[in-house]
Simulated scan of single mutants.
Amino acid sequence: MQTVTIAGHQVPAIGLGTWHMGDEPSLEKQEIEAIHAGVAAGAKVIDTAEMYGSGRAETLVGKAIKDIPREKLFLISKVLPTNASKDRMERSLDASLERLGVDEVDLYLYHWRGTTPLVETVAELQRLTEVGKTKAWGISNFDVADLEELWQLPNGSKAAANEDLFNLGSRGVEYSLLDWQADHKLPFIAYSPVGAPDQINTHLGSNPNVLEVARRHHASAYQVLLAWVVGHQQVLAIPQSSNAEHAKENVLAADIQLTSDDLNLLDEAYPAPTEKLPLDVL
């Protein structure tokens, strides 16, 4: 199984996303079972955020992990831009920790840039790391220019990861961002790695070329899409599923090794970018 190293921790390259989970009480049991199935299949990373369902996703994760040994998990949460100031961030993190039922998260991300000066946000992220409420901090929805600005700040280069939208139908980060992060030893976390409803390319899994590669590997189309994402250097994918069997299949996709012929077929359907594009966000 492919792995990624984040903040000194080696984790399987496919984790569990939780966006849109926890919103529907009638699905709680099923969603908890999906998280359990993903962890049982080998996932270690669970990615959530205070924004997701205004804390409901974190509450769901807390229920799901209460009987799982803490050392078996790598927990990621995120702070909203409106709470990313010196005055508000610790309160936000404390609330996330309470919903999750843990004393610390492994990685705390600045969800996207807001009006708080970046230098202030970074200073507070670093302070919360030093007091032990998070083991590491990072950023999300940052592009190359944002990261270059970040790297100029005190402690800015201590960022442990950057999380952005990345999938076969949204390849803009391949033009320069992935290389920048590789050069600076900054791991990349891919959200919506099999596509997302709000994207133009919403039917990646039904593309004939994707289906042909899936047939070759006796895999599902979604497994091929995930294998493609984590085939990139130091890229962690966090697909979301509320179905236990799908969650398991997602994690096992890290075992699929795509061939050069496979990659050519996927490139034919969804070509790599030939110029810098605006960062895709959801």
Rank of each mutant, 00 (worst) to 15 (best):
A57Y: 12
L100G: 01
T59Y: 12
G172D: 13
A244C: 06
V131L: 02
G53S: 09
Q10V: 04
D94T: 10
H111I: 06
L80V: 01
S170F: 01
V4Y: 07
G55M: 03
P273I: 05
D164C: 12
R56Q: 13
P193D: 13
S170A: 13
Q10C: 02
D87A: 14
E50F: 00
G17S: 13
W137Q: 08
P239I: 04
N83F: 07
P12C: 09
E90H: 11
S192W: 13
A272V: 07
D280F: 08
G8N: 13
E31W: 12
P193T: 11
G132R: 15
Q223T: 04
A123M: 10
I6K: 12
S242W: 12
V224D: 08
P154K: 14
G138L: 02
L186Y: 08
A221G: 10
E120R: 15
Q199L: 09
A227F: 00
D47L: 06
H36T: 08
P278I: 07
V122A: 05
P197K: 14
V45G: 07
L27R: 15
V144P: 01
L75C: 04
R56C: 04
V11E: 08
D94K: 15
A41D: 09
V61P: 07
K135L: 05
A237F: 09
D267T: 05
E33Y: 05
N209S: 11
W180T: 01
G38Y: 11
L125P: 06
Q2H: 14
E149V: 03
E58D: 08
E130W: 08
E104L: 05
D267N: 15
L27C: 00
I14P: 01
S85M: 00
A159R: 15
E130K: 14
N250D: 13
E130G: 02
P239A: 09
P69F: 04
A237S: 10
K66R: 15
S157V: 05
N209G: 05
H36I: 04
P208M: 08
W112E: 09
L266K: 14
H36F: 05
N209W: 00
S77H: 09
A34T: 05
L225S: 06
D179W: 06
R215F: 03
V102G: 05
L97K: 12
K44Q: 14
D143R: 13
D261F: 03
Q126D: 15
T116V: 14
W112L: 07
P25L: 06
D255K: 13
A253G: 01
D87P: 03
A37E: 12
L75D: 03
G169W: 06
G53T: 10
G132I: 03
A219P: 01
N207V: 08
P273V: 00
A190D: 11
V122I: 12
T115M: 12
L165K: 15
E90N: 11
E28I: 02
D143Q: 11
R91W: 04
L109Q: 14
A159G: 10
K86D: 04
T115G: 02
E58I: 01
D106I: 04
G101V: 06
A219L: 09
G114M: 11
V213Q: 12
H184L: 01
I35H: 10
L236A: 03
R216M: 02
N264P: 00
V229C: 02
E163G: 00
